[in-house]
Each structure stands twice: as C-alpha cells, then as structure tokens.
Design a protein around this nucleic acid. Structure first.
Length: 271
DNA sequence: AGTGCGGCCTGTCCGC
DNA sequence: TGCGGACAGGCCGCAC
C-alpha cells in the first residue's frame, strides 16, 4: 500500500522517536507475514541501540549497533509507537519492545509486510540488492531510464512500477507521474524518446516531492493511537478518478488494467 | 531474459 | 439487509 512518500514520512516520524533508544525484545502474534518471522527475532535484536532510521525504496531500515532491522509494510502496514501495556488490536501482529516503556507496533491487516533482522549490510540483502536508484539520487536521469528501457517492449507504466527501474514507485505515483509527463501509460517503454525520459524523470520527482511535503503535515499523528501517520489525503490528478474531468483539459479520465493493476490517464493530455 | 500471471491475506465497496 | 464478487497504494515465484 504505502509507496515511497508514505514510507519517507514514516521514516521522518520515527527517526526522532527511536534514535538512541534500545530494542529490548519482540512479541510476535503470528508466525509469519509475507514471509516467516524469525522465531528468535526478539533474542537477536535485544540490546541493539538504534543509530539511524533510513529508507531504501519502500523499505525502512532501523540501523542498530548490532545489526539492521528491515521492515516492509506491504499494502496495509502501519507502525505506531505506543506505551508498553497498550492492548493489541486484531491486526497488531508484531511488537518491537523499545527500552522498558515503549512498543513499536506493526499493524498489518493483509499481512503482506516483511520484517527481517540482518547482521550484514542490508543494502546487500537479496531483497534490496536489485533495487533501482532512489528517485532523488543523481543516478536517476532521463539517460538512465532510456538505457534501462532499451530493447524492452513492456508498457512504460509497468516499467515504472518495477522496483529494479526506480525504487519506491507504486501504482498511484506511476499513474500520476505519467500524467504530469504527458505520456500514455500504454506506450512500449523503448519507444520513448530521450526527451520523454527526461520529462518522466522530472515528473517522478515533482509528484513524489509534493506527496512528501503533504506527508510532513501528518507527522504529529505519529504516536496517536489510531492515527495513520504517512497515509495522507492525496489529491490525485488521475489516480482513482475514472470518468471525472481531467484537471487540465476537462476530458473524462480513462482507466484500464495493466499487469493486473488499474491505470488512470487522460486520453488527450497523454500521448 | 523478459514478461505476465497467480497467489498471498483481509477489508471494503458495489451490484443484485 | 445479505450475499457474492471484484478490487485494494506490493511483491515473489513460476510458467511461458
């Protein structure tokens, strides 16, 4: 569910709450989420002091003195820092104990999340090693996209959602970026010109930066029970707006399915 | 190798 | 009001 801007917002919210604190155990209420939870997770992370809260694509990384906790929130995951002793709800599957008084609680109704502990460099973990560049890194450019697209026939929308292309883009921001760039989501990606790849690169940064700025307004919700920090009230240009008027030309927004996912676009502003 | 699809889970919404 | 089915902002593993 959450894409890069939501994860970045969560990262910014957690950073001041967790940095310098010590993990003191874990309480798992299910055996697995998307993949099995390590049975000895609590033992392995006990005593780890949180040094930094980082993000790579849609993954959160709690860099600690003795290793790194890798978290992925899947489609429905939430994190809250609550007081020790707060009664868990139905979908509160994992508690990470923080010092003697707090709990970092993972709520995830669909259980598509992932939680791993590694003593190695997390960026070399198989799940993260193949990720494409961060959208705001200099490594991402129109030239990079053009090279990555060379010889490939898949639709540009699916190309954008592939985490090996760019890290962190999901279904919403793929549609939104293509609208801002004026590119039809059905185009075979190798057919885009360098100029179009440049526009796409700029559009990705525009929509992500907007969403991150919007997310900053939700940071106060972070430790409020029931609050949903990082899940903010987006005003999409096209996503979810099938049949509604295009904000630029007024034509009806169209929807179609690509790779099993809904795409939204304006048939006149995107070509 | 690149591509598309099914499956994982539960909640919600829509049409009948 | 109840029910079935489709769908949901993700990702992996598999078959072609």
């Amino acid at each position: 569910m959450p894409e890069l801007p939501e994860i970045e917002t969560i990262r910014r919210g957690l950073e001041p709450l967790l940095t310098g604190r010590t993990l003191t155990g874990a309480v798992a209420r299910v055996a697995s989420l998307r993949r099995p939870l390590a049975g000895d997770l609590g033992r392995r992370l006990t005593g780890a002091v949180v040094g930094a809260v980082e993000r790579r694509g849609k993954y959160l990384l709690l860099r600690c003195s003795t290793g790194t906790l890798i978290l992925h929130l899947g489609m429905s995951g939430h994190l809250h820092l609550v007081e020790r002793g707060t009664a868990p709800g139905r979908h509160d599957h994992l508690d990470l104990l923080v010092d003697a008084d707090a709990v970092l609680r993972l709520t995830d109704p669909r259980r598509f999340g992932t939680v791993l502990w590694t003593g190695e460099d997390p960026l070399h973990h198989p799940l993260l090693a193949g990720l494409g560049p961060e959208p705001f890194a200099a490594a991402l450019s129109g030239t990079y996209l053009e090279e990555k697209a060379r010889g490939r026939r898949l639709a540009v929308k699916s190309f954008l959602m592939d985490q090996k292309t760019v890290a962190g883009i999901g279904n919403i921001y793929a549609s939104e970026s293509l609208f801002v760039a004026g590119i039809d989501p059905r185009r075979p990606v190798s057919a885009l010109t360098l100029q179009e790849h440049d526009r796409l690169c700029a559009a990705l940064r525009t929509v992500l930066a907007e969403a991150i700025a919007l997310g900053a307004t939700t940071l106060d919700d972070f430790s409020r029970p029931g609050g949903k920090p990082g899940y903010f009230d987006l005003r999409p240009r096209v996503y979810g707006r099938a049949g509604e008027p295009c904000t630029v030309c007024g034509a009806a927004i169209l929807t179609l399915r690509q790779g099993g996912r809904a795409s939204f676009f304006c048939p006149f502003c995107q070509s």
